[in-house]
Design a protein around this nucleic acid. Structure first.
Lengths: 211, 211
DNA sequence: CCAGGGACTGAACATGTGTTTAGTGTACTG
DNA sequence: CAGTACACTAAACACATGTTCAGTCCCTGG
C-alpha cells in the first residue's frame, strides 16, 4: 500500500484485502502483518484482537459503500452491477469484502443488506407507481428476491462459473448473464400462468400468514 | 445415530452432519469423533485424514442426491424446492451438506452442479420446444441463471432472511418467496423492454463472444 | 489353545495461530 | 536534559487441532 499512511491504516487495508480474498477464518494475523510491513504484535496493539480488527474493517468498508450506493437516490440491484462493471479494482475489492461479510453474517453486513432491501423496495414501489413495473402481491418479498439474486450473481460459486466456460466469476460472466437476466425480467419465462395458478392454489391450503 | 451401524458409517454420518452445519473448516475431528461415540484416532484410522474423510462424505451424499434427483426425467430448479419442502430432516441435511460443498467448491459438488445445469438446460429446451417457455437468446446462460437463483435461495444469508422477518432460511421463507418468484417467471417485472433494448445496445458495443 | 490381524484407545507430538510480555527506540514535554 | 508516552518489535506463551504411536482387546483361522 502507500507508504505515507499511518501504520494503523496500512494494517486495516491489508486486512481488508486478505479478508476479501481468503475470508476471515482462513486469514491469519501474521500474513496481514506481513503485507502491512509490520510485526504481528502491532496488529493486536492497535486493534486489540482479530475480531475487533474485523469490526474496524467492516465499519470502514461499510462507510465507503453506503456513502456511494446510498448517496443520491435509492439504488436497486442494477446499480450494484453497474458499480461492479464500471469501477476499478478498488471498488471491486470492497465489493468482494462486503459479500464475504454477508456470507459470514457480520453486523455491518446485516446493516448493509437491510439498506439494500429497503432501497430496492423503494425502487420497486416507485416503478409500480409510475407504471414501469408490474404490481406484485408481496413487494417486500420481491425486493428480497431481487437483492438475493444480485448478491448470488456476484458471489457465484466457481462451479457455476465453470458451467459458462469461465474459471471464476468476473466481468465476462456478468456480461454473459446480463441478457438472459433482463429477458427474464421483461418477458418472464413461462408462456402461461399454469405454474403460478398452481402455486397460488397450493399456498391457499396453508396460508401461514396474511398482512 | 443408530447403534447397529459400523463405526466407519457412524463416523461418516457424524461428519456429514457436522460439515453440513458448521462447514468443513470450522469442524474439528474431535467433535466428529465425539458425536460418533468414538476416539479421534479411529477417524484417522478409518479414513486416513480429514481431507479424505471429506471426500468420502462428498461421494456418499452425492451418490444419494444424484440417485434421487437424476432418477427418472431431468429435473429443473423447481424439483430442488419440492424435494426440500416435502422431505423430512434427512434429505434437508444432505441438501445443506451439498450446498456447503458447492460453496467450498469440492470436486463432487462440481459434478453435481454440472448435472443440475445440464438437466436444467434440457428442461428449458423441452419447454421452449413445446411452447410452454419463451425462447431465449442464450439457453445455456439461462440454465445457469435458474440454477444459481435456486442455489442462492436455498443458501440464503441470514441477513436476507431477517429482512423477511425470519431468523434464518427455512420452509416459511421458501413459501413466502414462492409467489413473487413465480410471478416473476410468468409475467416478468418490467412493463416495457426499455432496459432490455438498452442492454442489447450496450453489449453490441463490445461483443466479447459469439457462438 | 494360540498366533495374527484388525478395530480401537489414551497419550503424546507437531504445527499453526491468536495473544501476551518485556523491552527498545523515539519524539514530544516540562 | 529528564522523563513520559507511545509506536513498535522479538520472543515466548497458550491453546486448538490434525496426526502419530504404542499398546489393548477381541475375533478368527489353524
Amino acid at each position: 500500500m502507500c507508504s505515507d499512511l499511518t501504520a494503523q491504516a496500512k494494517i486495516r487495508n491489508a486486512a481488508i484485502a486478505h479478508f476479501a480474498r481468503d475470508g476471515f477464518g482462513k486469514t491469519n494475523l501474521r500474513a496481514v502483518a506481513a503485507t502491512a510491513g509490520v510485526s504481528p504484535a502491532l496488529v493486536i496493539h492497535h486493534f486489540g484482537s482479530k475480531e475487533k480488527l474485523r469490526s474496524a474493517c467492516d465499519e470502514h468498508v461499510l462507510g465507503i459503500l453506503v456513502r456511494r450506493a446510498g448517496g443520491a437516490r435509492p439504488s436497486g440491484m442494477q446499480d450494484l452491477f453497474r458499480e461492479y462493471l464500471s469501477n476499478p479494482e478498488e471498488y471491486r475489492l470492497q465489493m468482494r469484502y462486503m459479500l464475504r461479510a454477508i456470507e459470514e453474517d457480520t453486523p455491518a453486513a446485516a446493516t448493509f443488506v437491510e439498506t439494500l432491501v429497503e432501497e430496492s423496495e423503494q425502487v420497486l414501489r416507485a416503478g409500480i407507481a409510475d407504471g414501469s413495473m408490474r404490481p406484485s402481491s408481496d413487494v417486500r418479498a420481491l425486493a428480497v428476491l431481487t437483492v438475493l439474486n444480485s448478491v448470488a450473481t456476484l458471489t457465484m460459486p466457481p462451479s457455476l462459473a465453470r458451467a459458462l466456460g469461465h474459471e471464476q466469476f468476473g466481468p465476462d460472466v456478468l456480461r454473459r448473464l446480463a441478457l438472459p437476466t433482463l429477458e427474464l425480467y421483461t418477458h418472464g419465462l413461462f408462456t402461461d400462468d399454469a405454474a403460478l395458478k398452481a402455486a397460488r392454489a397450493a399456498l391457499d391450503d396453508s396460508p401461514q400468514e396474511e398482512d
